[in-house]
């Protein structure tokens, strides 16, 4: 009887689960739909007509979109690199030995995402104030890297835990030094986890707005541009075109990260 119950789910459960997933996905479809609407001044539904002209408008007659885009890409790239370095170091250190205070330190590393973003933002801002650091690209990067480190750390620490100690010992026994072991044994095994963590960090930074409003000063990243368009709309469909673009730019790294860590998930499942 229990084996029967295992394969067929109760109808109510199925409806609730599928309904929940629809709730998660349908809203995004409207972003795409409204990028094609002919109605410029309101969010009238259904759209009175469909057009592709807004993509052209966003591309050629809205120069205010490009500088924020470049700034966002620059910030995301540098923050990701910093996060990869620091996040991996932290994961390597905390997964290899047990020592006094390890628990508290690992809690410390998740703090930047456990606390609301506004706290990170205003804390950094008041620190810049106190030390009279003027706002620049680097103040934005500093804020972004702080929570990107957490993302890389989380990805890397999970992989380090699965890393077999035997392989490392075997490598050492066969005469490899620590650096060779890292290069030939450890790196190939953690590589995909790092790449996945880096992609998620990039997506997170490219899209971040809460911390950025506090650390950017007068600079405008793409999310800040979008926020100002949301509060004071000019051409609503153009904002939709940019929204579609931002959505795709963050989606691709997420899918890639999933693809890269997928194998690990499967081995994790099969060992159960």
């Amino acid at each position: 009887m229990s084996s029967n119950g295992k394969n067929t789910s109760p109808l109510g459960l199925r409806v609730a689960a599928i309904g929940g997933l629809l709730f998660l996905h349908l809203p995004l479809a409207f972003i795409f739909l409204y990028a094609f609407t002919t109605e410029e001044k309101s969010f009238a539904f259904p759209p009175p007509g469909l057009t592709t002209k807004w993509f052209g408008v966003a591309w050629s007659s809205r120069p205010d979109i490009w500088p924020p885009l470049y700034l966002s890409l620059q910030v995301a790239a540098i923050a990701t690199i910093l996060a990869l370095i620091f996040g991996t170091l932290a994961a390597a250190a905390l997964s290899r030995t047990k020592f006094f205070g390890r628990e508290s330190i690992s809690l410390l590393f998740v703090l930047p995402i456990a606390l609301p973003g506004i706290i990170t933002g205003i804390a950094l801002r008041s620190a810049f104030d106190i030390m009279s650091i003027p706002f620049s690209v680097w103040t934005i990067i500093l804020g972004h890297a702080t929570f990107c480190i957490v993302v890389v750390y989380n990805n890397a620490v999970a992989r380090f835990r699965r890393l077999s100690g035997n392989l490392v010992e075997a490598s050492m026994d066969l005469g490899a030094d620590g650096f060779q072991t890292f290069r030939h044994i450890i790196l190939p095994q953690i590589g995909t986890a790092l790449l996945a963590g880096g992609m998620l960090a990039f997506a997170l930074s490219f899209d971040e707005v809460i911390v950025t409003t506090f650390t950017a000063g007068q600079q405008t990243t793409l999310p800040i541009w979008m926020l100002s368009e949301l509060i004071r709309p000019r051409q609503r469909p153009v904002t939709n075109v940019v929204a579609v673009f931002v959505f795709l730019v963050t989606l691709l790294p997420i899918l890639a990260a999933y693809y890269l860590t997928r194998e690990g998930e499967h081995t994790g499942g099969s060992s159960k």
Partner: peptide
Amino acid sequence: FYLAVMMPLWSSYLVKVYAWKLILAKEGV
């Protein structure tokens, strides 16, 4: 299922909020 949960989790926060702005608008969906 995993992807269906991960995608909305990681996809752009502002875009998601914006989607609701137009869904909830008085003349909206």
